[in-house]
Design a binder for these strands. Structure first.
Lengths: 162, 162
DNA sequence: TCAAATAGGGATATTGTATATCCGTAATTA
DNA sequence: TAATTACGGATATACAATATCCCTATTTGA
């Protein structure tokens, strides 16, 4: 059970967009170059973010993406679910219903006890991702990324941002 | 990102094995019938449990599986990791290293900040699964499963347990 | 006004993993 | 001795992830 690589891409792209000045846009092309990713395929991930309403887009030259809300309002969970989908990692096939000892047509009282435990773990996972915003991430990156690279990247982005 | 159906199968099988009397064994065939699953494929899941040391096996007629430890020592995480593998759900491809603003051969100080957040969520998921044992599960099932079905299944299992 | 650049969506190919089955082997029991 | 079992290897199938290509509508800048 491994997350799509698009999740990683989307997270890093949102990190960049989080430090983009208000009102500026950054294109798929620039984001792909910056991260060394296939432009066409990265585009699909960004479209997922757009469909989820997490980013705003404009067309034409100097078009691209910007966050639709402030970095401190955007959580890791938002991005992960936009790309990966909001479904549960554990899908209950209700195999207890195949028990030959059951009378036919027996109606279950509620969700399977096994599934409930697995779903609680899913919720713990989601909860952890919901607690971290992109404002938190940017703060961490500012503190630990080499200052020369940090500002160099910032300049690189600004030069390409419409 | 969805767990293998084998995870569900293994969990339900361990639930049955947890209420099996000391020293008795239950075969793949019986476990497959009880849950309405393909015997050959379920066998692979049970083999994973065996390789992980969670169950003990015997060969020959009246052979099969029993738990290798007491139900209160066996956690959901044990079973999930045996079948699904213990790897992380988020694989860091370290795409920050593709940043064209970096000097070539630049050495990273540590794991990516994005990956660390994702890994913490993974750990929250694991931690939730580690907290629930099969003794807990059996207790829940005893309390909520229809008593007639519960005892009927118990008899069904005993008749087939070697 | 027009050419270039952009997001977006559809179609398609490729790869990889999950699912599923089959068969042979060694061990064990009745 | 014959039947039953776990186990491992080989193989086939279905489906999702990955990746690319092309067309369209829109917008910008020259």
């Amino acid at each position: 059970m491994i997350l799509k690589s698009q999740v990683e891409w989307a997270l890093h792209c949102c990190a960049i967009l989080s430090s983009l000045p208000e009102g500026r846009y950054l294109s798929t092309k620039a984001l792909a170059e910056l991260h060394g990713l296939p432009k066409e395929y990265l585009s699909k991930a960004l479209q997922s973010l757009s469909q989820a309403g997490l980013v705003h887009t404009t067309l034409g030259p100097s078009g691209g993406y910007r966050l639709a809300k402030a970095p401190n309002e955007l959580t890791f969970l938002d991005v992960v679910e936009a790309v990966e989908g909001g479904g549960r990692t554990f899908v209950c096939q209700n195999i207890r219903a195949n028990n030959p000892c059951r009378p036919k047509g027996f109606c279950e009282s509620g969700p399977c006890a096994v599934a409930r435990v697995m779903w609680e773990a899913d919720e713990a996972w989601r909860s952890a991702l919901r607690k971290v915003t992109f404002a938190d991430l940017v703060q961490t990156l500012e503190a630990e990324v080499d200052p020369a690279i940090w500002s160099g990247t910032f300049q690189w982005v600004l030069k390409r941002a419409g």
